[in-house]
Each structure stands twice: as C-alpha cells, then as structure tokens.
Write a protein that binds this DNA or RNA. Structure first.
Lengths: 333, 333
DNA sequence: TCTCTCAATGTTATCGGTAACAGGTTTAAT
DNA sequence: ATTAAACCTGTTACCGATAACATTGAGAGA
C-alpha cells in the first residue's frame, strides 16, 4: 500500500473514531492517556501526515502565506534569496505554503497573511488595503509590525570599530532614501561620533557601487590617509573599495571600509569586506513565525491593519561586526 | 460583504446550480452559451477566485510543488533566487503552491511533484525513491527529464567570440566536477577550438574565485599577452580578472575574460564581465510549466521514475553572449 | 402519437479534516 | 441515595469543489 494514510486509517487502526484522532493532534488534553498511546502508535505505524488541503478547508483558511517583494527584481539581491530560505523553512515546519509575489498586480487569490519586503513610502497606500495579518520585513513609521536588524546598533558597531581602530576621519556613506532603516543607520553613526566628540560627515548616494566609487575618485584630495568609510550597504562599500584601489590608496592601513548587510557581496569583494552582518536567514524564520502566531491569535480572520493600535510588535535582531580585510582590526583590550 | 465568493455564491447569483458553474470552468463545452454568459457575468461581478484547498481536496491532490535545492546554501547564490522567481511565477498562475526545501531530511509531507536543482552524482539514489513526477534543473545522465541552458552552445559562443576578437591563446578555466553540465561546457570549447585548428588547453578548479586568481598569479609567465580566458562560471571569471589586475595585465587588450551564468556576479565585477548569460528566470518558469504538464498528463498520480523509458524530455535554452568590458568586442562582419 | 436517444442541468456523495452537539459514564455534592 | 456537574468519546454536519449518477426536456424516428 503506497497510499497515504488518512485520519480515518489511523482511527481504524487504533480502533477509535476519527474525532478522537483529531483531538489527539489538536487538543490532546481532552483525551485519556490510554487512547492517546493507541493513537500515537497507529500514527507512527502508518506514518500519518495530516492532509494540508483538508486542514485548510475545514478551518476556512488557505494555509498560504504570501511573500511580497516590492523591489525591482532585475537586480535580484542575494539578500532576498537568503531571507526566503528562512521564511520557507519556518513555514514548512508549520505546514504552510509559500507564495512568492514580485509584482503588486500579481497578487491574486486569497491567503492567510502577508510578509512584505522592500516597502517604500509610496507602497503604504497599497499596503493598507490588504485585509489579512501582515508583517513587514524592515522597520517603518507606519505602525506596521516588523522584523529588522537593529540598524542603529549596527552602525554603532561599525563606527565604534572605526574609532577603536584609530582612524582619524570617519565618513558615513549613506543611501539616498527617505526610509526608516536609513535614518536609523545614520543615527547610529551620528550618535557614536558625537559621543566621542567627533564631527560627523554624511554623504548619500543611490545604492550603486559606481556612485560611491565615482565620489571617492572625484573627491580624492579631500580624504587624508587614516580615513575610514562607514557604509550603509555592502554595495556602496564595494564602490568605495574600488575607488580607493583606483586611486592607489592603501587598504586597510591608510583607508578603512566597513560595509553593511553581510550577504554574499562582502565575500565577493577583494579584499573581503569588514561588514555589519545581519542574521538574514534567522530573521526570515522569525518573520514567518511571528506572522503565524499573529494569524492564530487573530482568529477569527480578516483582521485589518489598525493604524491606531499601540501594541505594535517590533523585533530587532542584533547584527554582528565581521572583521575582515578592510579594517585594521586592532583589538584595544 | 468582504467575504470571498464561493462557487455557491456564483451559482446563486447566476441562478444555476453549483455544478453548472464548476462545468463552466472545467468543461465549458458541456454548457450552453446562454448559461455560460450568465455564469461569467456572475463570476466577474463577485470577483470569484476558486478555492485552492477545496480544489486540491476534491481532486485528491495537494497542489503543492516542492523545489528542492540540493546545494549547500551557506553561500546562497543569487542564481537560485532568480530561478525561484521564475518557478514561483509559473506556479502562481496555475494556482499551485511552492514549498522550498533545502535539506533532504526536511522533505516531509506530500506533494504533487518535485523540481530538483543542484543534483550531483551521489544524489540520484535518493532521487530514485521519490514517487512523484520530477523534473531536474540541470542536465544529467540519469534519464531524468530536465531543463537547462545549452551549455555546449554557450561555450561555443564564448570560444567563437574569443577567436573572433583575435586572441591568440584561448584557455578554458573549468570547474573540477564530474558533472554533466561541466562536460558539455568543456566539449563546446574543445570542439570550437579544434574546428579552428587550435590547441585546446583546460585547467580545472573548485568553483571559487580565489583558486582561479591564485592560478593566474602563479602561472603568470605562461600567459603571453593576447590571451583570452574562457571560464565555466562568473565566479572563476572574477578570480581571473583579479589575478590579471594584480599582475598588472591589461584588460581587455592584452587579456580577455569571458564568464558563464550572467546572474549578478557579472555586473558586480569591475570591469564588468563579458559573459554567457542564461535566461534563468525564463528557465524557472519553464521547469514549472513542464512539471505541471507532466502532472496533469500522468494522472492518476504516483508515477515513479522509470529509468528505462526512452521518451525523456530535455529542454535546452540558448544562452546569449553579453559583451561587456572584458573582451575587445571586435565585430568581424 | 409515442417512444427512444442524447444533450443539458441538477442532486448526491465524496475528498480529509474539525467544530458543535449528543450520549454515556464517572465523580462530587447535597 | 439522588442529582448535577464534569469528563470522555462518538455522531453529524460542514468547509468548497468535483465525479458520478439522476432527471428533465427536446428532437428524431417509427
């Protein structure tokens, strides 16, 4: 028999009713230990796996979670691949299916909840119209629940490291985007600089390596040796690295570079980037877990986003400074 | 009413029975045009979307497709992200859900079919035991249906371009892997070289940029100016690029480089790589489409893999040579 | 005119679970 | 001892869609 065992099969084997088996699974406290033992034995023997579709249908849910990626996917960042792995893993564990949506208009069909990544200011009108539990990947000022890495802490780590390593001038290369994550990263840099009595200096670019590279080359005379560039992304950091190499600056002794993200790009760079690494995969799992929790709590369904509630869930993961070859890595003890 | 419309709702609105509506969707030829019109109107008005779970349950299927990634995901290649987008898109269109599995052992629960990527020789024992329609992403010698890019044609393109551009020495940097795709790429190179009466020369490495880079630096004296390196991956190509830059060789006049894959890495390199680009996203959609076709054809389910059948499906996509900054790009007309 | 056939539509049962209710037994309280 | 409350398990109906069967009606042929 290669057919897959159903509840009924298990019930027969254990000589009880379907309902008892169902209860053993969902409300075990309502069943005597005696029967539970029988049922467990039968489940094991038949290698019972609950039927996804039946569960969904009975519960009037879809057991589908949509992951909506709101960024242009032509330059698919490895970042999202990693995130997706994390989400997928957590979802699988709980017998939920994933639907990946890359364009707003492709969002057809129902689902139990949304995970949104790459939401920008203009996207929130659209987001508000979603009528299912939603969690954003990335901090935001719209009172949406979210998971993110602690961006401010990340640039604190980076800036402290630069100070610690003895660089005189520490410049922040930011992303030209009026988004929350960027504000936080800049703040982490600013605060740390000020606390140390230094003069912060911020320059901003589109998130392309070439822009950072051009800037470095065009303003080369402004950068005295013993300068460290703290960047808001590994992309920018790579640009800086190239700019310095092009101008024959020495890395890391004359010039330090610290990136942000720690996904793939940092390893591709040469020399490999010192970077603020986010635990992206873990974060992916966490968003998924949180969303499922929210869904199960919020039953009955169709909870709309309420911009006025004040019990927002904000989960921040601490990033980690990975010291590699673009900083001096002194260890002041 | 924000509730989602069901078959019954549509039936009531159109004043027919559920069954008629179902037939309009699945067997339209059995329904009169008159009723069809009514039903279509009702469906449009109610914005009817078929219930995924109910469909699955009624048809005794899962409507779940598993994408199994058999490679180490610690260095998640952007390649897979792109592929996944393609798969997801095609699946969404046909109301199938995707389950991403990254470790063999995590493959619990039933599904309607498998898409396998990154299968190596040792994986096939495990693959054989899968008892659902399966399609591989990547050519193989085990008689599995597959989709891949035309690897041989890809290196033919690359090698021809190198010849065309007037490079004297043309060396192939391959991946040290006894896998089908690598054989094909090497063959494309060999054949093209021989047809032009040249001496092929192949070196192989693990697929890491550093290995290629070290080799270039350590054997620098062997490479006369006017040499082109045809590589089996963009990763290797990047290593070569660095090696050459490190030895102060001139790109592309003295030394040409051609990569393979065309996903992300080629753009990150500086100068940007001339590469053989695979239409990865399209290929992803195609695998999915093929699998769905196979599933619907193979009903009733549980079709095992039959290693002896001789009607294997092999779909090859033609890659494209993208000329960028690491070749001379002469255009012999 | 009366049947016979076939096409068009409706009715019923089913997929595999779960909530709600019903029935039977034990325990506790008066 | 009697009754109620608590507890455990089984029965029924339902989630939304579909295959299989039942029914209806129109047109063909005798």
């Amino acid at each position: 028999m290669s057919t897959i065992a159903t509840l009924t099969d298990v019930a027969k084997a254990a000589n009880v009713s379907k309902m008892t088996v169902s209860r053993v699974i969902n409300h075990p406290e309502q069943v005597t230990d005696e029967l539970k033992a029988l049922v467990f034995k039968a489940m094991k023997e038949l290698d019972y796996q609950p039927n996804f579709a039946a569960k969904a249908l009975a519960a009037n849910t879809t057991r589908i979670i949509k992951l909506i990626i709101l960024e242009k996917v032509d330059t698919v960042e490895p970042y999202y691949a990693t995130l997706l792995m994390g989400v997928a893993q957590a979802l699988n564990e709980h017998q939920y299916a994933l639907q990946v949506v890359t364009q707003k208009n492709a969002d057809i069909g129902d689902c139990d909840g949304y995970i949104i990544t790459g939401a920008r200011r203009d996207d929130f009108d659209w987001l508000n119209q979603l009528n299912r539990p939603t969690i954003l990947f990335g901090e935001n000022r719209h009172n949406y629940d979210y998971v993110d890495s602690d961006n401010k802490y990340g640039t604190f780590l980076a800036t402290s490291a630069a100070i610690n390593d003895g660089y005189d001038q520490i410049i922040f290369f930011g992303i030209e985007l009026k988004e929350s994550f960027e504000y936080s990263r800049e703040r982490g840099y600013m605060d740390t600089m000020q606390k140390d009595g230094r003069n912060p200096q911020i320059v901003r670019f589109g998130n392309h390596s070439s822009e950072a590279q051009n800037y470095v080359e065009n303003h080369w005379h402004e950068f005295k040796p013993n300068t460290c560039f703290v960047c808001s992304s590994d992309r920018l950091a790579i640009g800086v690295e190239r700019g310095i190499q092009h101008m024959h600056g020495n890395i890391p002794d004359e010039f330090g570079i610290i990136g942000f993200d720690g996904v793939f790009l940092d390893q591709i760079a040469d020399p490999k980037l010192t970077t603020v690494k986010q635990p992206v995969m873990t974060m992916g799992s966490k968003v998924a877990a949180l969303l499922l929790q929210k869904i199960n709590l919020a039953l009955p369904m169709s909870e709309d986003h309420d911009p006025d509630r004040n019990n927002r869930v904000e989960v921040m993961f601490s990033p980690e400074l990975i010291r590699r070859q673009t900083t001096r890595n002194y260890h002041r003890s």
